[in-house]
């Protein structure tokens, strides 16, 4: 944290990252850099390491080799800059918390253990609710929202946290068309505000309309760049046409 603010490079840098489960690597020697202000789609077949990459950047897994830096700071020193959005299934929607309470959780890091919410914290919460059109719903329990509103509530929590990097694991899964459009526009807003979004996604069809940048994985990095270039037919053939080693197997 010693780097002065103006010297921080506004980017996510992954250097030579290898992550393994039970000694079977899920990501091999991956290196890439992403500048802020982009909405990045993460593509690849099942088992390509999309979730593993997101979890590694979130600091949930211990890499075997390499390191991950955000704004030049190692991620384990920069937890508050990174927001990992839960998958829908992992959330207890009956939890006794309102939308406002959920967004307030984003401020806990700044407020500390027992401090009370300052004017600045309150403002951050209000701003987050406003930005994602949740102000009229602020008093609702989180189960009383539509799927798209629930996603926006979690984005608002990340906004209140003042995160710069948003990690979303298949956020479009299970959303109807209207909710998906609302989520896409919310992601667009975040990109315009200079945030970096890393979003795993399985459908290639609407890739170009949702993401300005794409990462294609199949255990290794196949391509990373502007969506249309990264998802070129040759790259897709390379990513989806090659069998992925996923676990112990025997050769006859």
């Amino acid at each position: 944290m010693s780097t002065p603010h103006h010297e921080r490079e506004p980017m996510l840098r992954i250097e030579d990252l290898t992550v393994s489960y039970h000694r079977v690597p899920a990501i091999h020697h991956l290196s890439l850099s992403l500048g802020f202000g982009h909405c990045v789609g993460l593509f690849g077949p099942n088992g390509a390491g999309k979730s593993t990459l997101l979890k590694s950047v979130a600091g949930l897994l211990n890499p075997e080799t390499g390191r991950i830096l955000i704004e030049g700071i190692a991620i384990d020193q920069a937890a508050s800059l990174i927001a990992y959005l839960p998958q829908r299934e992992s959330v207890d929607w009956d939890f006794p918390v309102t939308v406002r309470g959920l967004v307030e959780m984003g401020r806990y890091h700044q407020v500390g253990l027992v401090g009370s919410f300052s004017q600045r914290d309150q403002t951050a919460v209000e701003e987050a609710l406003e930005l994602f059109n949740l102000t009229p719903l602020a008093r609702r329990q989180i189960k009383e929202l539509s799927g798209g509103q629930q996603q926006r509530a979690f984005l608002a929590r990340a906004w209140a946290q003042e995160a710069d990097l948003y990690l979303l694991d298949e956020p479009f899964g299970g959303l109807d068309r209207t909710s998906a459009a609302a989520l896409a526009s919310a992601l667009g807003t975040l990109r315009e505000r200079g945030k970096l979004l890393l979003v795993s996604h399985h459908a290639l069809a609407e890739a170009e309309s949702l993401f300005d940048t794409a990462i294609l994985l199949n255990g290794e990095l196949v391509a990373c760049g502007p969506t249309s270039e990264a998802l070129s037919p040759q790259n897709l053939e390379c990513a989806y046409g090659t069998a992925i080693y996923s676990g112990a197997h025997y050769h006859s």
Binding site: A79, S80, A83, Y108
Partner: peptide, 22 residues
């Protein structure tokens, strides 16, 4: 419980996200 209410609340709500947020 009162002192650690906030980290507890984050953990109860979602272990993975709590862990990611430090």
């Amino acid at each position: 419980l009162v002192l650690f209410q906030r980290p507890l609340l984050l953990t109860l709500f979602d272990v993975t996200v709590a862990q990611a947020s430090g």
